[in-house]
Amino acid sequence: MRDKSIGNLVLDTVNYILLALIAAAMLFPFLYVFSVSFSSYKDFLQSDILLVPKTWVMDAYRFILSSPAFPRSLLVTVYVTILGTVVNLFFTSTFAYVLSRPVIGQRVMLFLVLFTMLFSAGMIPTYLVVKETGLLNTIWALILPVAIAPFNLIVMRQFFMGIPSEMNEAARIDGATELQTFWKIILPLSKPALAAFGLFYAVGHWNNYFSAILYLNDPAKWTVQVILRQIVIVNEPTSTLAGGAALMENAPPAETIQMAAILLSILPIILVYPFLQKHFAKGVMLGSVKG
């Protein structure tokens, strides 16, 4: 039905070119960071814009991965991400399931959940509660205070409500308790949804910077994002990586270390991105449906 006049052809071409330029603006920083991280310092200094390394050098990566601080922060972050995501999924799925059932006090509980999306006590009272519950300077401070994202809870509740109630009926007639129904029927049915929520929670943990800065002051527990800020934004690559130990000798130039550190920290995100992409459009749409 669309007419193919010259005007439309020009419009289409301009549109395609503009979109390609926008995409390039998103990709260029990654390409540049990638190629500098693998380049020798000489090549880096000599060329203005480096998009492909002239000679491939792994010094920066070797230096970062053999330092005491960075691998330790990777381990801490992997630990927090896995443990935190398990806690997120357990807390969110159990509560979301109960809220999807005709349970006593459902309206009150829903109101209390929704209210926290509109008003929160703020940083200081939350900080004091974390302190009083003894979580300060433990990695649980990065996990328990964010155990449930109210938005995810509501979306997951919507999802559970979409499961036909005949499932519950059938299970009850077969003599299953509510807990058995949840564990043996509802959860297995929800595997794809759990995977999607798990991915989003995991990315949140991996990228979280502020909780670590707020609640942890022991450098041994610093997460990747904290280390990364010290290396790149504060511009102290070698002393941060040495982590209090004597400065390592033969450090590669700061720029290549900084670029390599950025790439290492986004590698897990890039790896899960295809799976994320499969889910997120659906997730955003689910969330926009009124509860």
Binding site: T94, F95, V98, V103, A121, V130, L144, I148, L179
Partner: peptide, 19 residues
């Protein structure tokens, strides 16, 4: 069901309402 909701309820009480 209430037992199942306990972790969630405790979470909201301690980290959202206690503050």
């Amino acid at each position: 069901l209430l037992l199942l909701a306990l972790p969630g309820i405790l979470y909201f009480l301690i980290y959202k309402y206690l503050p």
